[in-house]
């Protein structure tokens, strides 16, 4: 169960090796979290991540989960929920893709879309139902500012996040009053391996900062969280920028 400050005792991470997710797990473990499920593609990295969390005192377990295999989600995630209540699900899987390549290789672009959107729809619905049955719990979805308005430079990823974001908002409304809560987190540029090859941009942030924002959002039972918070205003301005101007912006 969550405590008075919204801190979960049990956490399920979808995308168990995500740097943002692991920073969040580490932070929550120092507060209250004891049970952590890392769901992800079975790799040594996944096991190593679990081992790290165990060293912090958590009871960390791994479970094989592939966002691209929606047929399996019901069974895989059902097993996790059958082991005990999950107070918080952190949906962290995602892929950035390579816009230039993906534009030429539609099959690769579809992979981005299927991971970020279809995979989230399927696993999100499975988790939502379980949380609803429990009568409590938060589904925290790592969306992105990229989904707020698709840009020339990464509209494949951006559109998949736009879909995810809209889905998560709708799901939050659908779950209103059921005890389950959906929190949409929209980070800007976060320095992780996902963005390691990209040049830094202003207002870039860290996985630890996202983790702190998530903790605060849980305490406030927020529905939307921007990281850093200033992006809310920036994106609001960008959203209203005329198309002809937006197209030419160096972003």
């Amino acid at each position: 169960m969550k405590d008075a400050f919204g801190i979960p005792q049990s956490l399920l991470v979808l995308g168990g090796t995500s740097e943002i997710a692991l920073a969040t797990a580490r932070r929550l473990i120092t507060r209250r979290t004891r049970t952590v499920w890392l769901a992800g593609r079975p790799t040594p990295a996944l096991e190593e991540a679990a081992e790290q969390l165990r060293r912090l005192g958590a009871d960390a377990r791994t479970v094989a989960f592939d966002a691209l295999d929606p047929e399996s989600h019901e069974a895989v995630l059902g097993k996790v929920f059958a082991e005990g209540d999950i107070d918080m699900v952190l949906m962290a899987f995602g892929m950035l893709g390579d816009q230039a390549v993906d534009e030429k290789e539609p099959a690769l672009a579809v992979r981005v879309a299927q991971t970020n959107y279809t995979g989230a729809v399927s696993s999100g619905l499975v988790c939502a139902r379980a949380l609803q049955t429990q009568g409590h719990g938060s589904l925290v979805v790592l969306s992105s500012v990229a989904g707020e308005r698709a840009r020339r430079s990464n509209f494949i990823y951006g559109s998949s996040k736009a879909g995810l974001d809209a889905f998560a908002q709708g799901l939050g409304d659908a779950l209103y009053g059921t005890g389950a809560h959906v929190m949409v987190v929209r980070p800007g540029f976060v320095r992780t391996r996902m963005t390691a090859h990209l040049a830094e941009v202003p207002l870039s942030t860290t996985p630890e900062a996202v983790a702190a924002a998530i903790e605060l959002g849980l305490r406030r039972r927020s529905e939307t969280v921007w990281v850093p918070g200033a992006l809310r205003m920036v994106m609001s301005a960008l959203r209203h920028t005329p198309r002809a101007v937006f197209r030419r912006l160096p972003i």
Partner: peptide, 16 residues
């Protein structure tokens, strides 16, 4: 009725 329930401190609501 399915309702959201808290204690007197109004923290951590859950549904029952």
């Amino acid at each position: 009725d399915t309702v959201s329930v808290t204690g007197w401190g109004r923290t951590a609501p859950t549904t029952a």
